[in-house]
Design a protein around this nucleic acid. Structure first.
Lengths: 318, 318
DNA sequence: CTGAAAGCGCTAACAG
DNA sequence: CTGTTAGCGCTTTCAG
């Protein structure tokens, strides 16, 4: 009835009636039932955002980008976490899709067949974020991690380092870290260089883990002149340790991480890193969803952003 | 019809029919419409979790606690962020309640009248978390921040420090920081000590902010022999700066923060801090929701956890 | 064990 | 401008 019109400020309603309805609603502490509304209108103002992890430094920034854009609209982000597990991703996706969101923003391009099928069949805009090395179901916004790895390798070689060690999360779980690693080794190979030592970890306090792994690696392979980390947190831990031990960084040993984590900007020494454009990825993804929903023909396909190397204090000038 | 029974494994269905239905569902890529289901059954397996911020180190851990418990049930957490703004909290709450969740977990005890009214009228379990200094709408799980402040003040006095400076977020936005500050000054007053210098900040990179503020304060008030920070991040920044400057910590100047942020465990020197029981808070809150939903008469009222001081390397022994 | 029927609380179209 | 009428896709209840 008219009430519905008032509550949604739709259609023409006389100011008098309008006031009456509004008043009554307030007095009753009325909260509309979106479930019924959604069922009737076949529209849900929710955007499903599916990410591997919450605690990771990368996600909050992506989320900020998404929120910034969505805040000015009716749309609301709803977050689901997969813990990097394909089965869990499938479950979370199923669960979210069963609420018929208006769009999906999902991290990564690697999904189980079932997940891809669901995404393709959902009939809503699907934006895969963070990565562009692969084929998106619909659209993708991110950076090429393979290229990121290559660029870093080139910068390292250009700076004259040759004996390189790598530390990172156990590959396989984290496709983007894996791709960076692949790009990295590939570009090194082109320069005739091979990684001399490597170590992988699964979990633990990142800074502390970085220290431990670095200590172990330098003990094992004292000849190394560069340490490349799959992320800034372990890299920063390693850097702290190296400084304490009195290593000449970046003179004798160079170091680099990945992500350009804001949080670490106050450390005494700044690790070389690469900005992963997290906030912009969030923003762009949300914008594409909006455009699609408005019927505009937004770029279906890939949007590849260009990460920039920040040499910090741990990469000597070429 | 029968299909519904199969998909929910409810009621008696012959294995034959069951198989047929399951097969058909898979082939069609059927994803049930929870909207319709929820409308019909008047039940929604969602728990609204409303928190001030995502990037804050505190939230992910609370979320972990909640997820751990909820994972073994039908219930799913859905997160809303308020940015510490009461108006936004109101909006987010309204939005979430309009989806008729099974329960609400919301940070803090301070809410607008409208928010409290909504929570009270929702007719679902409402758990206010993090804080117990105040009157909950329904139940509360957390620590007493006033007491936390007092305990830290006592420990500082016991260690013999007397000339104390405070740095933290601008009070008023963050009620829990405010309460800690109040408890802190109160206990100091009992010991005949007053804060000699204080500084508040609004935003910025936490470690970096800590450095800046600390530098400014030590320049302004070189007589200080203790620095108390409203959180570990700015405290850690301050500590790094103090070490660089060659201060004798904790000999000449003691320092302490709050939260016991895991992330910082790899720093060269460990700030004295107080564990805020974040994961346990999440766990307990979720458990209460579950118990309530199962009709058990779970503790309505407050559950106060006891934070423990971790002296780290920046608080000398008494 | 399986089918049929009646809504859940709203929106969307259409009459007044 | 305002009321009426059908559903939305499920669950629930009640008969077969």
């Amino acid at each position: 009835m008219t009430v519905s019109r008032v509550l949604r400020n739709r259609g023409d309603v006389s100011p008098t009636t309008r006031q009456k309805v509004l008043e009554a609603a307030r007095q009753l502490g009325y909260v509309p039932n979106k479930i019924a509304g959604a069922l009737a209108s076949q529209r849900v103002n929710l955007v499903a955002v599916i990410i591997p992890s919450m605690s990771n430094m990368v996600f909050p920034e992506v989320m900020t980008g998404i929120s910034r854009v969505l805040e000015e609209t009716e749309l609301q982000p709803v977050v689901g976490v997969t813990d990097y597990l394909p089965e869990k991703e499938e479950k979370v996706l199923y669960e979210m899709l069963s609420w018929r969101p208006s769009g999906v923003i999902i991290a990564g391009l690697e999904h189980s067949d079932a997940s891809r099928a669901m995404l393709a069949a959902a009939g809503i805009p699907v934006i895969e974020i963070m990565d562009t090395d692969g084929t998106p179901v619909d659209s993708a916004v991110g950076i090429s991690h393979r290229r990121a790895g290559r660029e870093m390798a080139k910068a390292i070689l250009a700076a004259g380092y040759r004996r390189i060690g790598y530390m990172g999360t156990r590959l396989g779980l984290d496709h983007r870290a894996r791709k960076r690693f692949e790009g990295f080794t590939e570009a090194l190979a082109k320069g005739g260089v091979e990684i001399e030592d490597q170590e992988f970890y699964t979990n633990g306090s990142a800074l502390g883990k970085g220290r431990e792994m670095t200590a172990a690696m330098m003990a094992r392979s004292p000849e190394l002149d560069f340490l490349y980390y799959s992320n800034d947190m372990i890299g920063a831990g390693g850097l702290l340790w190296m400084r304490e031990q009195g290593y000449d960084v970046p003179g004798a040993v160079g170091m680099a991480g990945f992500n350009d984590v804001q949080l670490l900007h106050g450390l005494p020494s700044k690790l070389a890193t690469m900005d992963s454009c997290r906030q912009e990825i969030g923003r762009r993804a949300a914008e594409i969803i909006l455009a699609r929903l408005n019927g505009e023909d937004a770029p279906s396909g890939k949007v590849e952003l260009t990460p920039v190397i920040n040499p910090g204090d741990t990469l000597r000038a070429p």
